[in-house]
Design a protein around this nucleic acid. Sequence first.
RNA 1: GUCUCCUUCGUCUAGGGGUCUAGGACACCGCCCUUUCACGGCGACAACACGGGUUCAAAUCCCGUAGGAGACGCCA
Length: 464
Amino acid sequence: MSHIRVRFAPSPTGVLHIGSVRTALFNWLFARHNNGKFLLRIEDTDKLRSTEENTKSIFEILKWLEIDWDEEPVIQSNNIERHKAVAEDLVKQGKAYYCYCSPEELAAKKEEALKAGKSYKYDGKCRGCSEKIAGKNPVIRLKADNVGRTTVDDLVQGEVTIENSQMDDLVLLRSDETPTYMLSVVVDDHDMGVTHVIRGDDHLTNTFRQIQIYRACNWDIPRFGHIPLIYGPDGAKLSKRHGAASAQDYKMLGYLPEAISNYLLRLGWSHGDDEVITRTQAIEWFDFDNVGRSPSRFDMAKLQNLNAHYMRERDNKSLLEYMKPFLQSELDAEQERCILAGMDSLKERAKTILELVDAVQIYMGAPGRYDDTCLKYATPQHLKLLDEVIAIVNSMKSLNEQALCDKVKELAKNHGIKLVEIAQAIRGALCGKLISPSVFEIIAILGKERTLDRLRAYIKHYQN
RNA sequence: GUCUCCUUCGUCUAGGGGUCUAGGACACCGCCCUUUCACGGCGACAACACGGGUUCAAAUCCCGUAGGAGACGCCA
């Protein structure tokens, strides 16, 4: 058993961004690959924006993606007292201090620095305050070590070094005695025994601040891995504006979880020329050597292609179950039978579940309206041909797809026209549009009665 | 502004000094298959950001330049 422990630590202030999902996936794969533990921590210390629903939806979406976690999820807000105690202990040890500077005072200093074209840093005015003054509400700041330099050997980025003079005395505990994010993360990661902190690139510079806290506490510093962010097709941060940014969005758009994981995995990670990768392979192959350092753009077309692949790979029954929540009404037994019978050819025409739902309508009932394109195949000649098709269908004892096809081909030959002329007219009648699987397959599935009804309705509609 | 990171086809990427006239996938275009649309098959187009080094040899190593991103909160 390996001692590796990683964690995914979302804050429930919204739904899970697709970038966070990838972070979760990489953590999970790393844990599973190394036989380590994948832990979950809900960072709900921002009480104003955190909600119960968001927490629930995070659990749900992870389960949906089959990213399972070990041990009970840690709820960060339960640890606030502990965080506070750590901060106060650091003051006692002289590694942190009470700061009585007011926010207004600080803002003024900052503005001044900015005006002078300098970068702002807290000036350490209160560094000497180790006593609490009654009636005042100070913050606790860390006495940052600002000599020398700090190097992090990042799992993804390699060695990253900064001058410690860049560091300023960050706030550990707010004036209302709640811990800041920096403090909470470090304490919780330490308490949870996290050995590898794998998170988004945006935390890379925070890492140096956090290392200062680890050092002040005399705790082991974990390894860090910062994976690049995901951008939209235009290179800007991926957001709702690009159509969809959260895992929920993609779920609702009809993407399969296995397609999303596969896509996300390949975004920023590679294994030679492999594109379609199973979970088992992913666990076997995943490592940080092959995680890219550059940010990548989200490409919907590629996701779609992968989704189409996984849809074709799913068996028809599971696909049917999967699409049920997307349907506007419950299916009766006959509709189910038809869809299942036609699924093989329907699913290879759809890239998403939403498209499949649309394609499946031909088995839900007669067309409610005819697409304008049908007009081309609704001339008096076409309608006459359909009369003959009706005769053919009527004459057959059982509607066998191949036999039907042969007979209609013969009909076309007798009239000296191409099959497409008749097939498209039939398609228009049966489906209300000119795109569908083989019309003979559809007839065979629908059966005589419904086929004749639809053919007659079409003729009647266009006779006027 | 300061600090940090990034830069191979439109996109995701392979590539770790010679096997690179730079490989794959998606997208796009063309052809074949074909009752439509897809699937499938075949093919075409298409990239090492720029400038200097190092070396017999550089997409690969070093240094600059340009462009992009992130961080600089009593948010997480």
